[in-house]
């Protein structure tokens, strides 16, 4: 039995280690986590094989023959065996725990020359803010990162709990209302990945994904400067060409409306809420019933979504009151009405 068990353990460990378990490795120290996992596997598989071998061997060897009414050997225990199977697992898990602790300290260690990126979660998208040139900040909904640059992500949320996770970086951290959490990552592989929200955050949870682009440092610098110029232009009061509607599209995209709503103009296909390609007609119809102009109706639907819910849809949209306001809100309403065939801006 021992020989069978030993052979089966070796085969089992070989199979377990030959499986390519993890996604691409795209950050420093990811190897340490993957190795830790493989060590755990190599310890675990022989234990499982041991249990299986004893169970199967016993069933084959000690199985009752038909009509056998006898009893087994009256063995009540063995102090020696019991001491062994308390001590060995104890030492094993203690050793593994210490190993895990060492890896944890290392992957979370503060890095030299960290760049702080502010991450904000919101139903159902992520926002990123970088320190730009000249003390300004740069906002983006795509997470651009320079290769080999250590980052400290400071994570917050505007509404409920989300969880910031890039599987290729391995590390994960919840975004918690009322506090700022952080996680440290040094991406080391150029490529395109996704920020996945890992904590159930509502109806659009499955669609809460933002793109991560890890680029060469010089490309990153160029991107950051370009973004900084763009932000300055907007901040300088220069209205984007196309008036409020173009700004409205920006508001629509950056607030993650597309996670739940289909809107052809913005290229979104969510189905949790009503299709917004028809919102001009719907706003006219339902607004009339409720004594509101189309624009007032759309505004109310954003700020107080459960005041009226389109039949056939669940009353689940979160209120965007205070999150989208003032000129942004007007631009969004104008944009929605204009791309769905209605007249925008009539207030």
């Amino acid at each position: 039995m021992l020989a069978i068990g030993a052979v089966a353990s070796v085969v089992g460990v070989a199979i377990a280690l030959s499986i390519d378990w993890f996604p691409t490795r795209a950050a420093a120290k990811v190897n340490e986590i993957d190795t830790l996992y493989r060590v755990l596997l190599s310890v675990s598989v022989p234990i499982f094989v041991l249990v299986m071998t004893v169970a199967i061997y016993s069933v084959v060897k000690f199985r009752a023959r038909p009509g056998d009414m006898s009893d087994g050997a009256p063995i009540h225990g063995s102090t020696r065996l019991e001491v062994i199977w308390v001590t060995i697992p104890f030492l094993l898990v203690t050793g593994l725990a210490i190993y895990g602790w060492v890896v944890l300290n290392d992957v979370e260690a503060k890095q030299q020359g960290e760049t702080v990126v502010k991450v904000r979660g919101q139903q159902f998208t992520w926002h990123f803010q970088y320190p730009g040139p000249n003390g300004k900040t740069v906002d983006s909904d795509v997470l651009y990162l320079a290769r080999d640059q250590p980052y400290k992500f400071e994570i917050t949320t505007s509404d409920v709990i989300h969880s910031f996770w890039v599987p290729e970086f391995r590390l994960k951290q919840d975004a918690v209302p009322g506090q700022t959490t952080h996680v440290r990552i040094t991406p080391d592989r150029v490529g395109t990945y996704a920020v996945v929200c890992a904590e159930l955050c509502g109806l659009g949870h499955a669609t809460m994904r933002n793109t991560v682009r890890v680029v060469e440092p010089n490309q990153f610098k160029a991107w950051l400067e370009q973004q900084a110029r763009g932000a300055a232009a907007t901040a300088g009061g220069g209205a984007a060409p196309g008036g409020g509607a173009a700004a409205g599209k920006q508001v629509f995209t950056s607030n993650g409306c597309g996670a739940c709503h289909t809107l052809a103009d913005a290229g979104t296909s969510g189905t949790t809420g009503p299709k917004l390609d028809d919102i001009a007609a719907a706003a006219a119809k339902f607004g009339k019933q409720r004594g509101l102009t189309a624009a007032k109706y759309v505004k109310q639907s954003i700020e107080d979504p459960t005041a009226f819910v389109v039949p056939g849809y669940p009353p689940v949209m979160p209120s965007f009151k205070g999150r989208v306001q003032g000129a942004e809100l007007d631009a969004l309403v104008e944009y929605l009405l204009s791309v769905s065939g209605g007249k925008g801006g009539s207030g």
């Binding site: 340490e32 986590i33 830790l36 996992y37 755990l40 675990s44 234990i47 499982f48 898990v93 593994l96 725990a97 190993y99 895990g100 602790w101 890896v103 944890l104 992957v107 969880s163 996770w165 599987p167 391995r170 590390l171 994960k172 890992a198 904590e199």
Partner: peptide, 17 residues
């Protein structure tokens, strides 16, 4: 066994949720 793996914090951080 998978429970013990989940207890090891660096592994858990990746696989939780």
């Amino acid at each position: 066994i998978s429970g013990v793996m989940l207890a090891v914090i660096p592994v858990d951080i990746h696989v939780s949720d």
